[in-house]
């Protein structure tokens, strides 16, 4: 029997990860529920005036999306590490670069993508201008992918640790900051009447950069965590 090729292997891995997470729908729903609840906190804290909420909405939505992403970052390799399939993955003849990439893609499909698709609902609740909603959706689609890739580095480095939950936030939040800056600026740009394309282009550039380099760091991190 010959080992499946790189692409076939990554495809199967992607399917496996998605199926595994679909079997635990509560875990998929948790970050989304968190998103909804934190959005509900802001009118309580800032006051219900529509104008105030609308002016803060781009930043708020982006910060909450970022935190929701942070919540799910820790789970990326956790269950695979615990049942030993992560070790199998490291021993597999296929390059770790692509298999790690399909793990992240699977995670993004059930977290970042859903978050972005749900965001227009919360944007309306926070009185964001209707014209800004497509840009919010697009910026979240691009941005959460970067966040998932960067979060994967933190997950790979802390997966072997028993108390990794809070640590991962400390490690990766500094790297989330540029994404937050450009993501919220894109939405803000539409509100002030400036074209949002430059910001989206920079987010896309960050995504390309992260796609190229983050799997390398993740692979190195996983090897260290498994060895420890």
């Amino acid at each position: 029997m010959t080992a499946p090729g790189m692409l076939a292997f990554s495809g199967r891995l992607l399917r496996r990860q998605v199926v595994l997470s679909l079997r635990r729908p509560v875990e998929i729903a948790n970050p989304l529920l968190f998103f909804a609840m934190v959005v509900a906190l802001f009118p309580l804290g800032l006051g219900p005036a529509p104008a105030t909420l609308a002016s803060f909405a781009p930043g708020l939505l982006w910060i909450v999306a970022l935190l929701a992403n942070l919540l799910s970052a820790d789970t990326l390799f956790r269950s695979d590490f615990e049942d030993g399939s992560l070790e199998q993955l490291l021993l597999a003849p296929q390059p770790l670069y692509t298999s790690v990439l399909s793990c992240v893609l699977a995670q993004w499909l059930v977290s970042g993508l859903l978050l972005a698709l749900l965001s227009p609902l919360f944007a309306v609740m926070l009185n964001l201008q209707p014209e800004a909603i497509p840009v919010l959706l697009l910026s979240l689609l691009l941005g959460t992918a970067v966040l998932s890739l960067v979060g994967g580095i933190g997950a790979a480095l802390t997966v072997g640790l028993k108390r990794g939950g809070m640590l991962i936030a400390l490690l990766i939040l500094p790297f989330y900051m540029p994404v937050l800056i450009f993501g919220s600026a894109a939405v803000q740009a539409v509100i002030t009447g400036v074209p949002a394309t430059p910001h989206l282009a920079i987010l896309a550039a960050m995504l390309c950069f992260a796609l190229a380099l983050a799997p390398l760091a993740m692979a190195a991190g996983l090897r260290i965590s498994i060895d420890a």
């Binding site: 580095i153 480095l157 802390t158 072997g160 640790l161 108390r163 990794g164 640590l167 400390l170 490690l171 500094p174 790297f175 760091a217 190195a220 991190g221 260290i224 965590s225 060895d227 420890a228």
Partner: peptide, 23 residues
């Protein structure tokens, strides 16, 4: 924080090396 979280100090050094390079 990452270095202190690892009990195995050899792995801790390597993990911190990856993190500082990412930084």
């Amino acid at each position: 924080a990452l270095y202190e979280a690892y009990d195995n100090k050899e792995a801790a050094g390597k993990a911190c090396a990856v993190l500082s390079l990412v930084g």
